[in-house]
Structure formats: structure tokens, C-alpha cells
């Protein structure tokens, strides 16, 4: 096959995967930034999102827009509840709360295994057809994922920048006690931040369900990659997460197309290590005060 024909496809796939990693990383980073908690269950909310998509869209044939809203509602409520019941009592102890989220991850994964079984379920595309851009031909469903992820990330960015609650979350992330002194009720911000963080993972799961398949274990790789992206982009930085996500996605896609999947993974980590050697705080990160 012609190498020139592969390039646009690899680029498109890189954008799809990159957008997914960016969504994952932003949510992970939001929870860490505001609450100083490493949420090991983050990938499980991606998994729940993809199951919600499978049942509502593929099984019950609900409109896809509604599928996204259902996933947001289900995971949002679950996230706030988990923050309340599991994370809150351990807030003062970072290590214990991390282990607790690891426990949540195990419970959710095995719960899904019990109820839904281990075999991967395929899910149909949300939009079909092909899009011709110049000489290149793209699958419309891939383009849909990119557009939808961009809209969600844009909405989240606006929320953080312009809304009163978004501003309060950034304040809590930068200086919790100073935020408290402005009247920000930090205890009310935490479940909200946790819920929004895991909702972003769920949206990633919904969007990617047709691209990958749906199973109890689908959250593991996005979680691991989100970790890498967050470190690469700079802890707590939204633009950093987007940039890092796209970079990792591109390396993965081009690497897999031209060098094979195993080499791509090695290349990815090699690039991350090289970047961190030059910029220890990540691409857009600031030194911790």
C-alpha cells in the first residue's frame, strides 16, 4: 500500500486516540489538582461509560445524544457518592485515600465482570459513511469522535474559566486555605470536582465504545495512558493534558502504522522520558510551590 495514503489515516487515528487520552487526562488532573488524590479508579469510569453506551445505544437504541447525557448523569452521581462515602473519610491521609480508590477500581471491575461477563461486546458506529477531504478518505465515525471530544473539552474549559464554580475549583487547586478564606466551601467543591473528573472519563468511554469494544477491562489502558499524559503535560494543566494527549496519540498511531504496536509503546515512553529530562515539570507544568 502507498505510504502517502497511510499518512492521513495515521494522523486521523492519532487525533482520535489523542482526544480520548486528553479527556482522560483532564479528568484525572482535575481530581488530583483540587483534591491531591490519585484516583486509581479513573479507568473504571471510562469502562462504566462504555457499558452505558453499549446498553442504551446498542441494546435499547436510545439516541446517542441521550446516551451521553445518561452516562454523564449515572457516572456523575456515582462519582459524587464515591467521593462522599469512600474518599471523604480518608481525606487527611493521602496514601489511604489512594489505596481506597484502588479498592473502588477492583470492586467496579469485578462487579462489571459478575454482571456483564468477560467477553468483549462490539458496538455499532454512531455515524456511518465516508468523508472525502482532498485525496484522502476518512471514516465519518472517527471524525465524529474528534468533534465530540473537542466540544466536551471546550465546554469544560469554558466552565473552568468563566463560571463561579469553575473559578472556585481553580482557587482550591492553587491554595485550598486561601480559597476557604474567600468563602469557598471546600467540602462542597470536592464531590463536585470528583464527579466532573470521572464524568470526563465516562464521556471518553462512551465516545470510544464503537472504536474499541466494550468489556470490564477496557479502562486499564486509557487509565495508564492518562497517567503518562498528565505527567507529560504537566500536573493540573488543562492545555498540557490536551497537548500531551495529542502527542501520545500521534506517536502511538504513527508508530503502530509504520513500526508496529510494540515499538510504538517503547517509542512513546522514550519520548516522554526525553521530554521530562528537559522539562521536569512537564510540557505546560509549573514547579510545585
Amino acid at each position: 500500500m502507498d505510504i502517502l495514503a497511510l499518512l492521513p489515516q495515521a494522523g486521523l487515528n492519532g487525533l482520535v486516540i489523542g482526544a480520548m487520552y486528553a479527556l482522560m487526562a483532564i479528568g484525572f488532573s482535575l481530581v488530583f489538582g483540587t483534591m491531591r488524590i490519585v484516583n486509581f479508579a479513573h479507568g473504571e469510569f471510562y469502562m462504566i461509560g462504555s457499558f452505558v453506551a453499549f446498553f442504551t445505544y446498542a441494546q435499547w437504541e436510545v439516541p446517542f445524544a441521550l446516551t451521553i447525557l445518561i452516562a454523564i448523569a449515572v457516572v456523575g452521581v456515582a462519582g459524587a457518592a464515591i467521593e462522599w462515602v469512600v474518599v471523604r473519610p480518608l481525606r487527611t491521609d493521602e496514601l489511604s485515600s489512594m489505596i481506597a480508590t484502588l479498592g473502588v477500581s477492583v470492586v467496579l471491575q469485578n462487579g462489571a465482570l459478575m454482571f456483564f461477563g468477560a467477553s468483549p461486546r462490539p458496538m455499532p458506529d454512531v455515524v456511518s459513511g465516508l468523508v472525502h477531504l482532498g485525496p484522502a478518505i476518512f471514516s465519518a465515525s472517527r471524525i465524529f469522535v474528534i468533534v465530540a471530544a473537542t466540544v466536551v473539552i471546550g465546554a469544560f474549559w469554558l466552565f473552568m474559566q468563566k463560571s463561579r464554580t469553575g473559578r472556585a475549583m481553580r482557587a482550591v487547586a492553587q491554595d485550598q486555605e486561601a480559597a476557604l478564606l474567600q468563602g469557598v466551601d471546600v467540602e462542597r467543591i470536592f464531590p463536585f470536582a470528583f464527579a466532573i473528573g470521572v464524568v470526563l472519563a465516562a464521556v471518553a468511554g462512551v465516545l470510544m465504545a464503537p472504536v474499541f469494544s466494550v468489556s470490564p477491562f477496557v479502562g486499564a489502558t486509557p487509565m495508564l495512558k492518562a497517567f503518562i499524559v498528565v505527567i507529560l503535560g504537566g500536573l493540573g494543566s488543562i492545555p498540557g493534558a490536551v497537548l500531551g494527549g495529542l502527542l501520545i496519540g500521534m506517536i502511538e498511531s504513527f508508530g503502530a502504522t509504520f513500526l508496529g504496536g510494540v515499538t510504538a509503546d517503547m517509542l512513546q515512553l522514550g519520548v516522554v522520558i526525553a521530554i521530562l529530562l528537559v522539562r521536569p515539570a512537564g510540557l505546560m507544568g509549573r514547579k510545585e510551590a
Binding site: A168, R170, Q174, A179, Q182, G183, V184
Partner: peptide, 16 residues
């Protein structure tokens, strides 16, 4: 709040 503008800092002062 170091990573917020002067005006955003003031807006936070009026949070309530």
C-alpha cells in the same frame, strides 16, 4: 492565587 489574573483574584474575594 498565582495562576489567576488580578481581576479573577478580586472576583474570588466576592465569591459569596
Amino acid at each position: 492565587f498565582p495562576q489567576m489574573s488580578v481581576e479573577e483574584n478580586l472576583q474570588l474575594g466576592a465569591y459569596l
